[in-house]
């Protein structure tokens, strides 16, 4: 890809990658680091990556960078759970968007990632499989389980409300 195509990929995809990572991490600084690291890796391979493959490359790289960081920082996950438990126990009214945020945060990493790639970016099962390294069948299973969890979560809260 050319420098112009590289810069276009910055304009086109950096927001999406940032949102995708931020939703998983809930840590803006880390999400920024992942975006920057991802584009640095793309830049080192700018001669090898075709422009039409740039988005897949970026999301794949960002996803694996994020997974590596999650594995290194399990403590963060525990803090997330504590925070969301507190929110739910408070019983205060929250909208569907906030409710979904809570539910998404409680999903296992794999399920959350595939659902976000599906909903945020509209990737097909096969494309998500390529990004995550899972099989297409596994992706379908994770999406099925994730959707069921989300539906049960908001269904149970709505019943209480």
């Amino acid at each position: 890809m050319t420098v112009a195509e590289y810069n276009k990929s910055v304009d086109d995809y950096s927001d999406g990658i940032f949102r995708f990572i931020l939703k998983n991490f809930r840590d803006e600084e880390k999400a920024k680091d992942v975006v920057q690291d991802t584009y640095e890796k793309l830049w080192t391979k700018v001669d090898d990556v075709a422009a039409e493959k740039a988005k897949a490359y970026l999301f794949t790289t960002a996803y694996h960078t994020m997974i590596d960081m999650i594995r290194k920082d399990k403590r963060m996950t525990l803090l997330e759970e504590d925070r969301h438990d507190t929110h739910a126990e408070a019983g205060a009214y929250i909208g569907l968007s906030e409710l979904l945020d809570e539910a998404v945060a409680k999903l296992p990493d794999d399920q959350r990632s595939v659902i976000m790639l599906r909903d945020y970016e509209g990737y097909s099962y096969e494309e998500i499989a390529g990004i995550t390294g899972l099989s297409a069948s596994q992706v379908k299973v994770y999406i099925f389980r994730g959707r069921m969890f989300l539906k049960n979560y908001i269904g149970s809260i709505e019943a209480v409300l």
Binding site: V3, V10, L100, A103, D119, Y120, R147
Partner: peptide, 22 residues
């Protein structure tokens, strides 16, 4: 309802440091 939609107000504000001069 459990279809997620991105919050488009969340953007990456540091594109400048990612861009490369021609």
């Amino acid at each position: 309802k459990v279809r997620l939609s991105p919050d488009l107000s969340v953007i990456y504000n540091h594109k400048g440091i990612l861009r490369k001069p021609a």
